[in-house]
Design a protein around this nucleic acid. Structure first.
Lengths: 186, 186
DNA sequence: CATCAGTATGTGAGCATTTACTTGCGTGTC
DNA sequence: GACACGCAAGTAAATGCTCACATACTGATG
C-alpha cells in the first residue's frame, strides 16, 4: 500500500500523543513503517505535515457546523444537531478529533480568522438567536465559549481516559440538554 | 535579586507560550536574564522544572477546591464558590493558570491519581449531591466534565485572546449560572 | 573584629546527542 | 526513458546539560 496515507495516520497518532514539538519524524516514520525520507516526498517539512492534518480537521469541523446548523431552524434544533454531529464525527475518527482538540493551541498563530472557524461560527449563531429573542441577551463570546466547553471538556476527559471506552455519542443526549441549559442560563 | 524566582517566572511564561517541548532552556534563561547553567543549579532537568511548576499549580488548585467547597453547604453554594474562587485565582496569577490549563495534557502521565486532582474532587462533590437528591441522577464523570468545561473553555478562549482584556471574574456570575444549569440539566 | 574555610550561587564555553532534513541510488510503472 | 516513489546513509544545526572557574554569603575561630 502507498506510504502517504500510512504516514498521515501515524502522524496523527503521534502528534495527538506527544504534541507537534514532542513528536519526532523518526517516530512517525517508524509507526508508519516507512523510512524518514518517505515523509519528505510528500511534505516539505514536519510542520507542513502537521498544519495540513490540522487544517483538514479544522475545515471538516467548520463545514460540519455550517451544514448541520443550516439544515434546521431555531437555536435549540441547531444545538442538538451540532452536538450530535460532533459526537458522531468524533467517534468515527477519534484520532483525528482528539488531535484537533488537544493540539489546537499549537496552530492558533496559523489560521487567519475569516469568520469560518468553529468558534466564530457558533458565536454567530448565538448572536443571531439573541437578536431574534430566542435567547436572553448576553456576551455571545462568553456564551459560545461555555456551550462549546460542555462538549470539548467531555471529549477531552474521554481522550484522557476518564470516561472509559464509551462512545462520545453515548452521552450526546445529556450533552445536548446541558448545552441548551447553558444557552438559556443567565 | 536571586535567580530562582526569576527563572520560575520566565519558565512559566515560555512554557505557556511554546509548550514544554517547544520551550528551550536558552529561551528561558534569556527571558530570566541568567545563564543557562543557572537553571541547573536549582533543577536537575528542564522536565523537572516544568513538572515542579505544574504540580505547584495543580496542588494550589486542588487545595482551593477543597477549602472553598468545604466551607459551604449544598451543591449550588459550592458551585458558586468554586467558580468565583477559580476566577479570582486565575486573574491574580494568569500566567500560572493559563500554563496549567494549556499544558495539562503534557503532565497527565506524571500525576498519580490519589483522588485529589481537581477533576476527581468535582466528580466527588457531584456524586455526593446526587446521593442526597440535590441533583438529578446521571453519570458524575460526564456531568463534572461538562460543568468544568464551562469554566475551562471560557478561560481558554480568554488565553487565546478571544475575550479581550476582561478579567475572568467579570464573567463569573454568568459562568456560575451556566454551571448550575448544567448540573441540573438532564 | 579580622580571618578564612565551607557552601551556595551564577557564568559561559563546550560536549554529546538528537533532530529535521538532504542526497544519491534503486525499483517499479506508464 | 521519464517519472513517481521509497530507502539508507549522511549532514548541519540545535538542544539539553556539564564543568571548571569566579563570586558572594555564612558563621565559627582566634
Amino acid at each position: 500500500m502507498s506510504a502517504k496515507p500510512r504516514i498521515e495516520r501515524a502522524a496523527l497518532e503521534v502528534f495527538a500523543a506527544h504534541g507537534v514539538d514532542g513528536a519526532t519524524t523518526k517516530l512517525i516514520a517508524a509507526r508508519a513503517e516507512v523510512s524518514e525520507g518517505a515523509i519528505y516526498r510528500h511534505w516539505k517539512s514536519k510542520d507542513e505535515l502537521a498544519i495540513g492534518l490540522f487544517m483538514a480537521a479544522h475545515k471538516r469541523l467548520s463545514d460540519l457546523i455550517e451544514t448541520e446548523a443550516g439544515a434546521v431552524h431555531g437555536v435549540a434544533a441547531k444545538a442538538a444537531a451540532l452536538v450530535k454531529a460532533y459526537c458522531t464525527a468524533a467517534d468515527e475518527d477519534w484520532t483525528l478529533f482528539s488531535f484537533h482538540l488537544l493540539q489546537l493551541h499549537h496552530f492558533l498563530p496559523y489560521y487567519q480568522d475569516d469568520g469560518r472557524d468553529p468558534v466564530t461560527l457558533v458565536e454567530t449563531i448565538i448572536k443571531y438567536a439573541m437578536m431574534k429573542m430566542e435567547l436572553p441577551p448576553g456576551d455571545p463570546r462568553v456564551v459560545a465559549a461555555m456551550a462549546i466547553g460542555v462538549i470539548t471538556q467531555t471529549a477531552q476527559n474521554k481522550a484522557y481516559g476518564r470516561l472509559g471506552d464509551d462512545a462520545l455519542s453515548a452521552h450526546a443526549p445529556l450533552m445536548t440538554a446541558a448545552v441548551l441549559a447553558v444557552l438559556k442560563a443567565r
